[in-house]
Design a protein around this nucleic acid. Structure first.
Lengths: 184, 184
DNA sequence: CGTTAAACGGACCGATGGTCCGAATCGTAG
DNA sequence: CTACGATTCGGACCATCGGTCCGTTTAACG
C-alpha cells in the first residue's frame, strides 16, 4: 500500500470515529462529512472502504480488537455461567461506550446486525457456553436471545437508567436463562 | 373526510401492503412505488400519511388490530407464565407472517422500534406479568429482553429454522426467565 | 347549477450514497 | 537527480429517494 494511501486510511478512520462519537444519530453522519473531516476526497473514501457499510465495519473492528482479544484466549475450566456473564457485561459496556457506532453498525440495512463476522463469533461462543451450562437443547436460540438483549438501540433506549441497573438486569437475565433460581 | 380521500386511503394501504409482503427488503419499497401501485399521486400519499413512518405505522396498526384485540380483554386469573408464553408466541407468529412490514417498522430510524405506541403496550403488559411471576426486581428489563428475542430481523435471520423449532426456543426462553427449571 | 373548500398529482427540491476520470503523486529503475 | 509507469487523489457528476409546492380538479352542499 502506498504511503499516502495508508495515511489517508488512518485519517479517515480517526475522523469517522470522532464524528460518530459526537453524533446523536449515526444516520446524521454522511460520507461527505467524513471525507471533509478527514481532509480527503470522496473518491478516496469510497475506494478504500467500498461503501458506508465497509467504513462502519472497519471502524467497528478497530474498536472491537481489544475486547475480542480479552476473550480470545479465555480458556475453558471456568464456570460457563460466569463466562457468559462476563461476556455479556463486556458487550453491554461496549455498546454503552460506543453508542452511535454500534447503532450505525446494527442499522446498515440488509440483515444487519446479523450479517457480521463479529456477531457470528460472539454467538458461537455464547451458544457453546450455554450448551455447557444447561444442555444443548435450545442453546442456539437462547444465545441469540441473550445477544438481542444488549442490542445497541435497546441500550440506547434505556440510556436514562443507571448503568448499574442495566448491568444488574443483564446479569439477572443471564443467570435466569442459565437455569439458576431468581435471586431472593 | 371526502369520499375520494377515503377511497385513496384504502387504495394506498392495500397497495403498500402488497408491496411490503412481496418485498425481500422493505427498504426496496419506495414511496414512489407505493403511490404508483395505488394509482395515486405522491402528494396525496404524503398528505394522508405525513411521511414514510406514518404509512408504515398505519399499515402496521391495521394488521395488529386483530391480535391486539385478542389480548386486550385477557382478564387476570390466568397463570402469568402461561400468559407471557401466549403473548410471545403470538408476537412470533405475527413477525413471521409479516416479515417485511415488521422489519420496515423496526428500521424507521430514530429510536425505532422503541418509539412506537404498540411496543410500549406490549412491554407494559409483559413487564406486569413478569413482576407477577417472579417479583418486580428486574421485571422491566427482562420484559425488554423477551421482546428483543422476537425482533423481526432476528426472526428473519433465522428463517431457515422450522417454525416449531423457533417457537420452542421462545417458549424455553420465557419459562427460563420466569424461573422455571429447564425442561428435561 | 354555482360556489367553495378540500383533495389531487406530478413537477420540483435538497440531500445522500456511490461513480468516473483527468490530474497529481508515489515509488523505482536508470 | 531524472524519467516514467502505476497507483491514488479529489471533486464534479449521477441516480434515487423522501418530502414539498402549487396550479388544477372535484366532491359536497345550498
Amino acid at each position: 500500500m502506498r504511503a499516502d494511501a495508508a495515511r489517508n486510511r488512518e485519517a479517515v478512520l480517526q475522523a469517522a470515529g470522532l464524528l460518530f462519537d459526537s453524533a446523536d444519530d449515526p444516520a446524521g453522519v454522511s460520507m461527505d462529512d467524513v471525507a471533509a473531516a478527514a481532509g480527503v476526497g470522496k473518491g478516496t473514501l469510497f475506494r478504500r472502504f467500498g461503501d458506508r457499510a465497509g467504513l462502519v465495519r472497519a471502524l467497528y473492528e478497530l474498536r472491537t480488537e481489544r475486547m475480542a482479544a480479552e476473550f480470545e484466549g479465555a480458556t475453558g475450566g471456568e464456570d460457563p455461567v460466569e463466562a457468559v456473564v462476563r461476556i455479556m457485561d463486556a458487550l453491554l459496556r461496549f455498546k454503552i461506550e460506543n453508542r452511535a457506532l454500534s447503532r450505525a453498525l446494527e442499522s446498515l440495512g440488509g440483515g444487519s446486525p446479523y450479517t457480521n463476522a463479529a456477531y457470528g463469533r460472539w454467538h458461537a461462543r455464547v451458544a457453546a457456553l450455554m450448551a455447557e451450562a444447561r444442555g444443548p437443547e435450545a442453546a442456539d436460540f437462547l444465545a441469540h436471545a441473550l445477544l438481542a438483549a444488549v442490542r445497541s438501540d435497546l441500550v440506547d433506549h434505556l440510556d436514562d437508567w443507571p448503568d448499574a441497573h442495566l448491568k444488574a438486569g443483564v446479569e439477572e437475565l443471564v443467570r435466569s436463562v442459565c437455569g439458576e433460581r431468581p435471586t431472593g
